[in-house]
Amino acid sequence: MKMNFNHPFHLVDYSPWPLTGAIGVMVLVSGMVKWFHNFNMNLLILGYFIVILTMYQWWRDICREGTYQGKHTILVTKGLRWGMILFIVSEIFFFVSFFWPFFHKKLPPNIESGAMWPPTNITPFNPFQIPLLNTIILISSGVSFTWAHRAIMKNNNSQMTQGLFITIILGIYFTILQAYEYFEAPFTIADKIWGSTFFMATGFRGLHVNIGTLLLKICQTRHLNTHFSSNHLFSLEAAAWYWHFVDVVWLFLYISIYWWGN
């Protein structure tokens, strides 16, 4: 077959997923409004269904293009890297917006919150119990992920499997502990500025841990199907960047909200 191109770019094929994704997101947010106003989740569930179906098929197509069609040349992966970097930068600013109200209310002695922090009648968590354990779990998961990454770089598929497995288990363990902590919490999201800032920041971070665990799980599934090699592992690296980002956000949360803000 005559090769009629000589360039490193990936000229993508027509794909229905941007359209179904847009429809899905539209249905999702409309469904959320319907849920808030009518206490009816039907449209929301339909929205989730369309979005998840789109996500699955879109990423499946990208895995096929990259792994089975070899479309991801060095230049293409450079573009993917920039995409992930910019995405994480936007995530950083997303979390800045949740730390902002916390510092705004914590730093000056605010009259609305009883001129003290934590506000009057709030019993915060002891930072040296579950939150400290969570810190240790997350840092350990960073270590085991680095082990997995080093293993695949050295072409060692078995140790990659083990390291990734441990990382996923630690991620799930973290989520379970945080859920337990939420059940045990002596305050709610309706408890003044403390409850609002605390649950907004830790809740969104918990959601990001779930997303990170999902990314790791996808990497594990792809790895068990031998999609990765020492020169074809960008999605693993993207998951690693994301995981470490979530890890660093936790450290900031732990230091400023759980410990210093206690």
């Binding site: 069609q69 040349t73 598929n157 031998t226 020492s230 074809h232």
Partner: peptide, 21 residues
């Protein structure tokens, strides 16, 4: 229990990615 190793990652690559490598 020996670690399963990938002998040559170049053999894993395909398409344009492989040609570039």
């Amino acid at each position: 229990y020996a670690d399963k190793m990938m002998p040559d990652p170049l053999e894993h690559a395909t398409g344009m990615e492989r040609k570039e490598l």
